[in-house]
Nucleic acid binder design. Structure first.
Length: 456
DNA sequence: TCTGGGGTCCTAGGACCC
DNA sequence: TCTGGGGTCCTAGGACCC
């Protein structure tokens, strides 16, 4: 048997842990830069707020409605979900964290327990210790476990845990389950299935395998079909190291100037290097992409991606930042208003077996770089991220004025968001300083002494 | 003014090897 | 008339997940 444990409306539930007054009220959490809605409470879903709704449309679409709005606070969500995972790990040692808010558990060897009761108890334990509501699905394979968790969320009667352990329950569940909700069936496949008259998961499962093969010619769809019919065939992924790592952001405002872009790209590259080191890996390819705002029909559009191979794979911040900036230089075209950039590192492998290049003139630097990164990581861990950064991650004016000067200038500029006038674009000081918009961000009572909740 | 940020797997086709 | 039979690696594109 498998279990899937899934935090209910994860980000909203995290916010509610320290805002119990928002229980039963509509709550949403926004993406980076307060762009669009990424998490909704059940009340917000019932109101008809769709995932992905741009924040600026919220007031127009839902006038005169009280909705609690939060900017995303990943520090808080990371910490609270880590606590949830720690409890799960204690109760079910064989587990696989599938995403920030959900976790598969392998229940082999636990068949002697009443698993339904075990799940209900686990829910209570997590709710009591962390304040996070979770739903639990139990079934003989992962697709059916996901199906079960859907019912655990939907029906109070299941007490947050639903188990599909007989054929009778399986068929009953599949008949009630729309095919587009099935794990592994996305928008495209769902549209094709609905066109063929397949409405529920049961309709799909009832076709024979030959039909599935002929219609989709796709191993993934075939596996989903098999699992709906009770087989266990979606491979168990172990806690694998990531094979590619990407850091990207939309800017707060638009950027025309390569120097301003460089601060952002340098920062994303530095984050990628950190992520590589954290999982004990190095990368051999550094890629950068750049694009304008696709929603601005009135402005010329540009999108591009390029990559560069490193002679020797590395996780060194300095090397990866330098490489990313070389790629940026190749990508950059004058005259566009850029909205987003990102850095991707690929060709990721273990840092224990790095193939060095005989002719790499930087070879003797490697050990120095490695030690430097280790020191910086340690300082940033103890004193907070970005305590130490590279100079290129910080905007500096070319005329030699120091960083204090730029900050002083930044404060003098008013109003904050300059608008685009007649084809020119003025970068806001926020974008120069890599400030993202986060108007509604909550505090971090679990990770910062200054934010600890004091009861009066 | 304002529209997210990450990942994975599979397949087909081309280039190359012997 | 007739032109082999294996392989691997890489890339782009399309699908999916959260």
């Amino acid at each position: 048997m498998y279990g899937i444990i899934d935090c209910d409306n994860c980000y909203v539930s995290c916010e509610r842990v320290f805002r119990p007054d928002l229980k039963d009220k509509p709550v949403v959490v926004l993406s980076n830069n307060d762009g669009c809605v990424v998490a909704r409470s059940n009340e917000a879903k019932r109101m008809g707020i769709k995932a992905g709704t741009p924040y600026y449309q919220l007031a127009e679409l839902f006038p005169n409605q009280k909705i609690a709005v939060f900017s995303s606070n990943y520090e808080l969500y990371g910490e609270l979900t880590a606590r949830v995972m720690a409890i799960i790990h204690k109760e079910a040692p064989a587990y696989f964290r599938y995403s920030i808010d959900e976790c598969f558990v392998y229940l082999n060897g636990m068949e002697h327990l009443d698993l339904k009761a075990w799940g209900e108890e686990l829910h209570k334990k997590i709710k009591r210790s962390v304040g996070m509501p979770v739903s639990i699905g139990l079934a003989p394979n992962k697709t059916l476990a996901k199906t079960a968790s859907h019912f655990a969320k939907k029906y109070q009667g299941y007490r947050h845990c639903c188990m599909i352990d007989t054929d009778e329950k399986r068929i009953k569940a599949l008949k009630l389950f729309p095919v587009e909700e099935v794990w592994g069936i996305g928008r495209r496949y769902a549209a094709r299935l609905v066109n063929l008259g397949v409405k529920t998961a049961y309709d799909f499962a009832r076709y024979d395998l030959a039909w599935v093969k002929a219609t989709f010619n796709n191993i993934v769809v075939e596996r989903t079909w098999r699992e709906l019919n009770g087989e266990d065939c979606v491979p168990n992924e172990e806690m694998a190291k990531k094979k590619s790592i990407c850091t990207s952001r939309s800017f707060n405002g638009m950027i025309t100037d390569i120097d301003a872009l460089r601060t952002h790209v340098s920062h994303y590259a530095a984050r990628c290097a950190e992520k590589l080191r954290r999982q004990g890996t190095v990368a051999s390819i550094v890629g950068v992409f750049l694009n304008t705002n696709p929603f601005r029909d009135d402005l010329p559009q540009y999108w591009n991606f390029q990559e560069m191979r490193l002679i020797t794979p590395t996780a060194s911040t300095i090397t990866i930042v330098q490489t990313a900036n070389e790629v940026l230089q190749m990508l950059f075209r004058q005259g566009y208003h850029y909205k987003k950039a990102g850095v991707i590192v690929m060709g990721v492998g273990p840092n224990s077996t790095i193939q060095q290049d005989l002719f790499d003139i930087n070879a003797e630097q490697f050990e120095k770089m490695r030690r430097l990164d280790a020191v910086i990581d340690r300082i940033n861990k103890v004193n907070g991220s970005e305590t130490i950064i590279l100079g290129s991650q910080q905007y500096t004016q070319k005329n030699g004025k120091g960083k204090a000067e730029v900050f002083a200038n930044a404060i003098k500029h008013e109003p904050k968001g300059q608008s685009v006038q007649s084809g020119t674009c003025h970068e806001t000081d926020e974008s120069l300083l890599r400030k993202s918009k986060a108007q509604f961000k909550s505090k971090n009572p679990t990770t910062r002494w200054s934010d600890i909740v004091v009861l009066k």
